[in-house]
Amino acid sequence: MLSIKNLHASVEDKDIIRGLNLEVKAGEVHAIMGPNGAGKSTLGYVLSGREGYSVSEGEATLNGKDLMEMEIEERAREGMFLAFQYPVEIPGVSNMEFMKESVNAVREQRGQESLTAAEFLKKAKEACKQVQLPLDFLKRGVNEGFSGGEKKRNEIMQMILLEPTLCILDESDSGLDVDALQVVADGVNSQRDGERSFIVVTHYQRLLDYIKPDYVHILAEGKIVKSGDASLALEVEKSGYGFLGKKYEGETA
């Protein structure tokens, strides 16, 4: 599904990703952990095509297609979904209009008919209930005045509606209390169907108690330095990121 080979990427001429390799197959859940500044968020942005992030070397393909040759919206239509760490507030564009527009753009790509307003409303209401947001959140401006937890749940709602093939969750646990974390994790788990793949980016092991990964990778200074199964996350939780070198001593996971 996703294949990343020797990826190098920079932001404003600063190298952040330095030779990253990752293979994600259909249905797998990969967790990427790492200390602050490791390049965790950069990876999500590079893969989704954010402007200002340039790739100098290596390649990344999604379903065999070169991601770097695709526009941002084409990557999304190809099935990539990035759940933002800091979802953007867009007052004046309603959540409903936004999601309907995006769902239909993705459907068009897949050769499916556009949903009518009524069909979409029905789906949206179900998704809204699933992430335990009040229905009036559909009418409000995109993320406008939402709390941190509500924004994260809104991301998961979009993920449910868009039915992507690859989901990248960028620190979807940050700033959440246990209840909200449970809702986010339940939303993600409900979408695990053996086909859909996930990359769960997180600083803390806690999220992985709720979303069980098949693989855990430790990202430091722009590359994966250690890979293992779920037990690696527990190890990091116990001993912190100190094993990465002196400058990470005392940084907990």
């Binding site: 095509g49 919206e73 999304a76 239509r77 979802p87 867009i90 527009e101 995006s102 993705v106 868009l162």
Partner: peptide, 16 residues
């Protein structure tokens, strides 16, 4: 820029 990226990242065309 960040608002535009958010919409694009959901598959919405640049023009729309």
């Amino acid at each position: 820029g960040s608002e535009l990226f958010y919409l694009l990242s959901r598959g919405i065309s640049r023009q729309r």
